[in-house]
Design a protein around this nucleic acid. Sequence first.
DNA 1: ATAACTTATCGTATATTTACGATGAACGAT
DNA 2: ATCGTTCATCGTAAATATACGATAAGTTAT
Lengths: 105, 105
Amino acid sequence: MAVSKKEEFTTEEIWLADVAKSLSHPARIKILKMLNEMNSCMVGSLVDKLPLAQATVSQHLKELKRVGLIDGEIDGPKICYCVNAKALTKAKSALDKLFNKIGCC
Amino acid sequence: MAVSKKEEFTTEEIWLADVAKSLSHPARIKILKMLNEMNSCMVGSLVDKLPLAQATVSQHLKELKRVGLIDGEIDGPKICYCVNAKALTKAKSALDKLFNKIGCC
DNA sequence: ATAACTTATCGTATATTTACGATGAACGAT
DNA sequence: ATCGTTCATCGTAAATATACGATAAGTTAT
């Protein structure tokens, strides 16, 4: 594309699209589910259960972290990732708001 | 990328990621809002209110249609788009399900 | 300080997305 | 049948995303 037009929308629209983008890969959906379900959330545990190389998993984690859906906490040589409940709630209510006003022409 | 790994996930994960992808551009978020709010939903009306060329808007509509979030109905020379309430509800509940089990390590 | 371990980042290749002008296809009206 | 209107599709250029091996950077233990 010659130039991006994304900045010509409202902050809310850009933010919500950005959250959706962070959810737009099955690996990231699965990572969120795993962080919800597993007690251990070190990167190594995620890599073991995903069909992806460590570098790729790290990239997906970075994308989820970028929009704030997860946080990483240093734990010795490891890093423990966890979902950010506040961000998840905010995203959920914004999507609910978008989805709830259903109309048709 | 050498080869896509997306097919190595569950159908549900792939589908939800696909829905999220269709929402991952502010123009498509705005289009959904407009279809909810406007009475008229012809492509021309959307083009008038978006900072994008007609061809680009058509491409965004195609993406929303691909995942079933909207439907297009032929109305003479025009096409009337409307949100698919059933698809929206399904997407909403899948996202709620994902977001509701909040845990942290 | 060296070694082993864990994760991030770099470099790179390929695929996909975004954007637009130009063109085509379908319709209604003249 | 030709014209104007409406929208989709084609072709194309540039940006971004995906994936991985290699490497760096940090920590813990020896």
